[in-house]
Amino acid sequence: MTGVSSTGKFRIGISACLIGENVRYNAGHKSSSLCHELFDEDFEWVSVCPEVAIGLGIPREPIRLVGDPNHPQVVGTRDAAKDFSAPLREYGSYMAEHLDDICGYVFMQKSPSCGLERVKVYQSAGRPALKEGRGAFAEAFTAKRPDLPVEEEGRLHDPVLRENFISRVYAYIDWQQLLGQGLSRGALIAFHARYKYLLMANNPQAYREIGKMLGTLKRDDDANEVGPRYFSQLMQALRRCASRGTHCNVLQHLSGYLRDALDVDDRQELQQIIEQYHSGSVPLVVPLTLFKHHLRNHPDPYLMQQAYLHPHPSKLGLRNAL
């Protein structure tokens, strides 16, 4: 269950080198100014270096992936007889179970222990395989925690991927808080109602499929059986990033709720701004700001609760670059 730390902040896991700890093979770090900027104010770091945790020293011989890209070994670069595959995978499974109060995880990219994707897998001749692999620790960790939002630090420099990851982190927090209050049929339906348009923007097909799943709910006991499946499908669906087209589709749906409340000029202006966003002339924050202005003047309880309109703190400015 995701909890609040003694500092009043939610906790997020991270590769220790990314927050400036000197744990790399060369006794250095890869401190990420972006991670500090994004998370320091609202989250508490839970730093992990699996290589140090399994007993490798600082400094140490570098390691790399070798063999089958689908299930590579992790060995020393100078002494391939040193096989760290099992310890790293066991530690990944262990930490996945014990870090039960985090709401996300940022991994170090291209690492043979922590990389989520695109990690080189070397063959006997010393050349990388055509297919790339995943770090042993990260692979084991994510297999145990498939619903947890995870991302690589390098990918967070892409504004679309960055906004998507933070949105998933706050959706995860929201769900854990719901579980803490108790899951019921009404609570599950209300949760889905809040995430309806965020889901529509990210994954229209999953939006339709997940809605059908909730149609099977008849009583509160059903929520305990359907709830975990619902949330797993929701988190997988939200991994897909919204496009300008799907954002515009959602904006048009939301605007429809205010059609009768707005005069002709206001409706035309809103449509023009949405079209400007669709063409790439303005960022997403522009039509959203205008829509929220109209929503404040014409409050609608259903719209005001939508996670799509506030998936993360506005102070982060994540939609300014979309």
Rank of each mutant, 00 (worst) to 15 (best):
G55W: 05
E151L: 10
R239I: 00
E152S: 13
G135W: 01
E97D: 08
H71A: 14
H278S: 04
Q233A: 14
L309F: 04
C103L: 08
R219L: 02
K131E: 15
L116W: 09
S184Y: 05
K212G: 04
K110M: 01
F43Q: 03
D265F: 02
R127L: 15
F107L: 03
P87Y: 03
W175L: 09
H247M: 00
Q236H: 12
V75I: 03
I63N: 05
Y230P: 05
L18N: 06
R155L: 12
R78V: 15
V150T: 15
S314Y: 11
R267Y: 04
G92M: 01
P112Q: 02
E90S: 12
F84H: 13
V264N: 13
E151R: 00
I166M: 14
D79Q: 15
V160N: 09
H71G: 08
L99I: 06
T7R: 13
M108Y: 04
E44I: 03
V52G: 00
V46M: 05
D83A: 13
A201N: 02
Q305F: 01
K9N: 01
A190T: 13
D260V: 07
D83V: 07
P72M: 01
L65P: 07
D147W: 00
V121M: 12
H157I: 05
L238E: 00
E269T: 11
